[in-house]
Design a protein around this nucleic acid. Structure first.
Lengths: 330, 330
DNA sequence: TTGAAAGCGATACCAC
DNA sequence: GTGGTATCGCTTTCAA
């Protein structure tokens, strides 16, 4: 084939389907080797176990995309400081990135900033947490409402009808935690045969000490409390209290994210169930999606890409993760 | 770099680590384009929903490996007829395959056959079900014992102490079902705080009508029966009986494999939990592992590669599967 | 033994 | 517009 412009895509499509032509992907890839792309990634709370896994995904993507002439510049931020995020964006754009993957705060400033990038022709993908209403080309992460529903469904399975359950959240303005809570609150009512008596939710600000205090108080005030739903961090504080109060095994606990401490809590029967988001995927995919967008002006298939909600118990949480990626080039 | 023989691998390894040389995978892949590999795959019970998913994995692998000069020849067999399997192997070897992926029966003849292939220098990978003691280079599939443990763990969570539970298996000589049963039987005793009264297991020969009959009989004889563990097929028969006997919602049921019918049973609250094996991976990986072995004489990292045990409930079973594969070449 | 050159499949560019 | 050609990074072959 002699020449090929982007405009010829219709002709190519016909050719492709009618004559069965399939371009050799390896050949294409080789040509791309010399290209020069720059993509940025900004991760908040990079010190947390979950974000470390997201980071692994980003690094893997960086490695795989390097041979396609893509440079992925990753900025790891500690905590949730919006100033730092805005600075990071500033820095990366001045470095000339053509696309951005970011775990955002939910603020008007950042929304405006992302919209500005979009106007400049720099596509943005939000990961792990979304920024609804912004002009990000897509979001990849957990469907927290659905996860809350899943938790409620499991609680209903584990507990008798009309059991008393305490929901804990993190910060009051954390969208993810709120969605996890709402999904949890809405679901039992849908199953008219089975219900839970859900106590008013309590924010523990992601702190184990506050979670400890709240749990202790709730247990002492409510001897019939037999389920705790931890939509945020604080599960260690909860588990410790349960043990201290001698209620271990009597109170069912569901928490989030399969990291080292939670695996230990599962193994010791302190936690009953952990709902896990596929953090690796959240880091791995955005760079590819951005690349695809920059190369072929192709938007991701969905604006909201939800990662799997994995239910982990004592028995299925320590399997060797068999990684699936990048076989094609081995 | 001028020349490179396989013998030079030690020197290369030194060079690689000390001077940080990394060969560009795309360049390597391009050269391989003209190579001529032939790999075979034989699938039994190809008509079943699970094997259809395995097949998808195989087809995807075939597509991706084609650009590396690999021809993957797939033979789909109906049912479990060992004669057909042996014929299939005969045919594929006469076609000149250099490696084989197969879902085997557990028989001495087949074991001997696989060992024969190994002696001939044709590596074999077993998938979905294993053939222990044979010289297959690895197995990929579910850890059925562990899955049984997972099921027992969930039953213990869902039911009060000392609840009566009925386990169903398929055929008496089905290794997978037996392992699922043994894992289930062994586990509750480990948790001394919580136990199940497990009834003698019943084989339903993977048939819904037999499962129906068994369940009906068991329910009528045991009004206190409140859990059924279906290690095989037959779950539709079980669910139907539960409904007929007016015990829906009163008896917890755990079954296997997330296929269309089971998804419906989950949605209608007939099934409580489905344990799913990652069937796609079971088909997708073996061709790559065989290729790797043929190319670089590299054995798979593990002889037993266990796919994830996914716990599916009503709420996390209909998520869009976000496929992870072959990004590197897009 | 060693170095130089010819591809592998697709794209990009430059003359015409 | 169109056809030829250099190029991507690596392996293989061939000749010196």
């Amino acid at each position: 084939m002699a020449k090929m412009h982007a405009d010829d895509c219709i002709i190519v499509a016909m050719w492709y389907t009618q004559l069965g032509y399939k371009p050799n992907l390896v050949g294409q890839a080789l040509v791309r080797t010399k290209r020069d792309f720059k993509i940025g990634a900004i991760l908040q709370s990079a010190e947390t176990p979950t974000m470390q896994i997201v980071l692994e995904g980003l690094r893997r993507a960086a490695e795989e995309l390097r041979v396609s002439g893509v440079e992925l510049i990753i900025r790891e931020l500690r905590g949730l400081d919006e100033e730092l995020v805005l600075e990071g964006i500033e820095e990366l754009t001045s470095l000339g990135i053509q696309g951005l993957a970011i775990s955002p705060n939910n603020t008007a400033e950042l929304r405006q900033c992302i919209n500005g990038l979009y106007e400049q022709g720099i596509p943005v993908i939000t990961l792990n947490s979304d920024l609804p209403g912004s002009k990000r080309i897509c979001f990849i992460g957990m469907d927290n409402y659905r996860a809350g529903q899943t938790a409620a469904g499991l609680m209903c399975q584990m507990l008798p009808d009309a059991s008393k359950v305490l929901p804990l959240t993190g910060h009051l303005n954390n969208t993810a935690h709120n969605n996890r809570l709402n999904g949890f609150l809405d679901t039992p009512n849908q199953q008219n045969s089975h219900n839970l008596r859900i106590m008013p939710f309590q924010p523990c600000f992601d702190r184990d000490d506050y979670a400890h205090e709240i749990t202790q108080h709730a247990l002492r005030e409510n001897p019939d409390l037999i389920g705790i739903y931890v939509a945020s961090n604080g599960q260690e504080g909860v588990c410790q209290t349960i043990e201290e109060e001698g209620r271990k095994g009597k109170v069912k606990i569901i928490a989030y994210d399969l990291n080292e401490p939670n695996m230990r809590l599962l193994q010791s029967d302190s936690l009953n169930i952990v709902l896990d988001q596929e953090a690796f995927e959240q880091g791995y995919h955005p760079p590819f999606l951005l690349y695809e967008y920059l190369m072929h002006h192709k938007l991701p298939e969905y604006a909201l890409i939800y990662t799997d909600i994995a239910i982990r118990t004592k028995y299925n949480s320590d399997l060797v993760a068999f990684t699936n990626h990048a076989h094609a080039l081995k």
